[in-house]
């Protein structure tokens, strides 16, 4: 029954997405264009990757905010390091070095959490400050625009291109492939591996997971490692897409990213969440942002509208839950 409910949740988000798109499209027909589709996806890519990295942790019941700091630290450090070496090659080495750093950062966090039995959120708070501080003090405090020769054209490398009636030539960036690959991998991990099922088990009932023989600490470590690596990939991708590397990349955004995942149906207390739902949650936030621009709401009032939408979106399930609770209390007796 609940499985159906979760399905419904994703379905509802999907419906909201469609409804929102229709409304915006009616107000401004420019919304229905290949260019809007491609741009929305392009803007979503890094959030897809980061969210897919945080989702497994959240399913196991760990709320992390340090992932944005890891993205910033790994991408910026890698860039400044390669810049110093005079590297002029392609993007691959970036992903490789940053990914390795992300792996280490994730493992460090996993070690702190499992070895000293600490709450994930508290540790992530400390590491969030630490990594940004590390970036700003040890590496550099200003954004850097000098890209290696081999990566300069990357921002405009498209998977497919199309003619758009409004903006002319438009394309879907190749890095969408990373997001898809990562999404499929995380989906597979969650659904088809013992590690993935262990994440759900830990989030559902940690004590029973230990008693049942899940290697809880190992599973935690995998989740942290995955979070570290994917954050790094997202950080580097963002650097190339925006054509500069920023030491305070995403610094104000950890809560927004978590909000997207939660909108997508994941539970902040663990045990629940899907890749599809997360992807829809990310898209919903991006579409809202785009819709606000296209519907002609003045820029300065857009954040307020997002705020109102958020208040409504968070209140509806709460009201529904309250009703359900009262109903259950009385039907338990029957």
């Amino acid at each position: 029954m609940l499985k159906k409910a979760i399905r419904t949740h994703e379905f509802i988000i999907f419906l909201i997405l469609v409804a929102l798109s229709l409304v915006v499209g009616i107000i401004n027909p420019a919304f229905f264009s290949v260019s809007t589709l491609f741009d929305t996806l392009r803007a979503s890519i890094v959030y897809f990757i980061m969210s897919f990295g945080v989702l497994p942790l959240m399913i196991a019941g760990g709320v992390d905010i340090s992932f944005v700091a890891i993205a910033a630290m790994t991408s910026y450090t890698t860039h400044m390091f390669l810049l110093k070496l005079g590297y002029e090659g392609g993007t691959l080495l970036y992903f490789f070095i940053a990914g390795a750093m992300g792996l280490l950062a994730g493992l460090l966090m996993g070690f702190l959490v499992t070895r000293f039995n600490l709450p994930v959120f508290n540790v992530s708070l400390a590491l969030y400050t630490m990594w940004y501080g590390f970036n700003l003090f040890f590496i550099g405090a200003t954004a850097n625009f000098d890209l290696p020769q081999g990566t300069v054209g990357y921002y405009a490398r498209f998977l497919v291109t199309a003619k758009d009636p409004y903006v002319g030539q438009t394309g879907l960036h190749v890095s969408i492939i990373y997001a898809v690959v990562v999404g499929v991998f995380v989906w597979w991990l969650l659904k088809y591996t013992i590690i993935g099922r262990g994440l759900f088990a830990i989030g559902g009932n940690k004590e029973v997971a230990i008693r049942s023989g899940f290697n809880v600490n190992f599973i935690w470590m995998v989740a942290f490692a995955l979070m570290g690596v994917l954050s790094a990939i997202a950080g580097v991708t963002q650097g190339f897409l925006s054509r500069y590397f920023n030491p305070v990349l995403f610094i104000t955004q950890p809560l927004d990213v978590l909000a997207g995942i939660i909108l997508g149906g994941a539970s902040i207390t663990g045990g629940r969440g899907t890749v599809i739902g997360t992807a829809l949650g990310v898209l919903l936030i991006q579409i809202i942002n785009r819709a606000l621009i296209l519907t002609g709401i003045p820029v300065q009032w857009q954040k307020l509208v997002v705020g109102i939408i958020l208040v409504v979106f968070t209140s509806i399930p709460a009201i529904r839950a309250q009703r359900a609770r009262r109903l259950r209390r009385t039907t338990e007796a029957a």
């Binding site: 540790v123 708070l125 400390a126 590491l127 400050t129 630490m130 700003l136 003090f137 040890f138």
Partner: peptide
């Protein structure tokens, strides 16, 4: 910021 994080850990 860095020191703060380290201290907290």
């Amino acid at each position: 910021d860095f020191a703060w994080g380290v201290l907290l850990v």
